[in-house]
Design a protein around this nucleic acid. Structure first.
Length: 241
DNA sequence: AAATGGCTCAACCGCCATAGC
DNA sequence: GGCTATGGCGGTTGAGCCATT
């Protein structure tokens, strides 16, 4: 309702990023970080909206981005996490290191959703992928990704910063679980647990509450809830034995 | 070989949450 | 407490690619 646009669109370039723009953005973030996205394009000399710069960095230029096809394990993880969390793509992305919320969202809408639909309608066989391995599409990308990325990053941005969702909403989801939905393969959880340790750098000990972590660590908080779900799942699956 | 339709994915848009004043 | 600026999220779009006819 009459909300002002995120930035003045006059003189703002839109559409696919060029290699030069990518390099400019990466170089600037390497040097100065990205404390202020709004001011960044001006400082870096880019004719882009700050939002656009942020998106480009998060979804494509970040050094820790994993490109290429999703593995079966990753797809399974997305399906399971989506069953738990719904369309909270950034939260799901936080559980899949190197993957972005945008990418996960795309994968979900393009194959996983269809796969689930088809498997639920005719329980048999997964939909065979109709297409070959995806190719990099980005306008200015080189063959194996965007501009050649320096390996070291100035700061490791929290991948798509997990939002700290309220307990109430989390429990809402929990409450709607059926025991069937909650059957999760052990391999998935062991991998996810490993990710928890790897990605955060500080493994959460069992029984640690979100409040015990620093207020800014919404990732840790999310870990807590995911862990809670996991434990609930274990309890449920144990009770089924 | 050309036309066409479907699929993929990067990018944009609008809204919400929160921090800072 | 109210207002503004900014960051972040999820939904949607559209150009380009690929497979099929």
């Amino acid at each position: 309702m009459g909300r002002s646009p995120c930035c003045d669109k006059t003189g703002i370039k839109r559409g696919p990023w060029t290699a030069e723009e990518d390099m400019t953005l990466v170089a600037h973030i390497e040097q100065h970080g990205h404390s202020n996205w709004r001011a960044l394009p001006k400082q870096a000399g880019l004719l882009r909206c700050g939002k656009s710069c942020r998106l480009r960095w998060i979804n494509y230029l970040r050094p820790d981005i994993k490109r290429g096809n999703f593995t079966g394990e990753e797809e399974d993880a997305i399906i399971q996490l989506h069953a738990m969390l719904g369309n909270r793509w950034s939260t799901i992305a936080a559980r899949l290191p190197g993957r972005t919320d945008n990418e996960i969202k795309n994968v979900w809408h393009t194959h996983l959703k269809k796969r689930l639909d088809s498997s639920s309608s005719k329980t048999s066989g997964q939909a065979a992928p109709k297409r070959k391995a995806k190719k990099p599409v980005a306008a200015a990308s080189t063959a194996d990704g965007p501009v050649s990325m320096p390996v070291s990053s100035p700061e490791q941005p929290i991948s798509s910063s997990a939002t700290d969702y309220s307990m109430a909403s989390s429990l809402e989801n929990t409450a709607s679980f059926t025991s069937e939905e909650f059957q999760i393969e052990d391999s998935f959880w062991s991998e996810t647990l490993a990710m928890t340790v790897d990605s955060s750098g500080s493994a959460m000990e069992a029984g640690v509450t979100p409040n015990s972590a620093s207020p800014s660590s919404s990732n840790d908080e999310m870990d807590f809830w995911v862990r809670l779900f996991m434990q609930a799942g274990e309890v449920q699956s144990l009770s089924q034995i």
